[in-house]
Amino acid sequence: MTQSTKVLVVGSGPAGLTAAIYTARAQLNPVVIEGEPSSTSDQPGGQLMLTTEVENFPGFPEGITGPELMTNMRAQAARFGAQITTEKVTKLDLTARPFRAWVGGNDGEPDYEATSVILATGAKSIMLDVAGEERLLGHGVSTCATCDGFFFRDLPIVVVGGGDSALEEATFLTRFASSVTIIHRRDSLRASKIMQERALANEKITFLWNTQVTEILGDSKVERIGLTNTLTGEASSMDVAGVFVAIGHRPTTEIFANELDLHPNGYLAVHQGSLTSIEGVFACGDVQDHHYRQAITAAGSGCMAAIDTERWLESQGS
């Protein structure tokens, strides 16, 4: 049966849940399709579900863990009446109003009809896409340091990437591992200064610059990785027990990429705050943010999308 709603929020990271809190408090009874469990960043709660301490979200002087922060946001949205469902949108039709959404299948009657849609689908982790990676996922290859760090007690591991999440994971993993090598394809980091200083000062962390992982080897678990120097092309190998992948994220746009204007870099294009190329469809969070990509900016843009939605609905007399 098709459920009708004024506001359909797709996604449940800081952007989607902030949009839900605001539209719920505006008594618009939003429906939030939060996504389905997975061990990548594409899951209810978004990327923060896989992080440890969040130290830069205002209001938490002692820090708060990512999962705790997202559990709180979800409870806050639910408290004001947002209807949150653990499903994944598989198809969206934005060609006519009401907009239509399907979950779990693409056929038959739509599961939801919505006067307005707020897209907050976020971004997914990028994998290395090298030989052995998929086969050894869960056997030494990991995308979740907080989940799997425990299994690498006194073992040598590598973290691939040079951004904040790579450095945060590396620092966290020094609690367990005998050594943590950060492998980065450039010779400088894009991570924030404080994370850089912390990692550089950590005795267990070493850096391997201008280096790319070319393959992951091992019979039943990770034993070794193949490396290439990006400047000289020189190949080498390294014995490791664990490979943690943190090379960045890609916006999750599959379900609407052919209906809405995208930025040339693949992010969802917005104008005047949160407006997309279709009237009545708004966007917030990492799916449209190729510049800041922070929990707090995602939350802020979720608020913007909610207010834009509310005003647009008013202008439509609904």
Partner: peptide
């Protein structure tokens, strides 16, 4: 059982592991 990632779900039949599922998955 060489669990190196959680969640891992192991299905046992007659005391023997017959299937290993690594990572969170939707119910279906």
């Amino acid at each position: 059982f060489e669990v190196m990632s959680i969640p891992t779900l192991l299905l046992f039949k007659d005391g023997q592991p017959v299937q290993r599922l690594i990572g969170a998955k939707p119910k279906g």
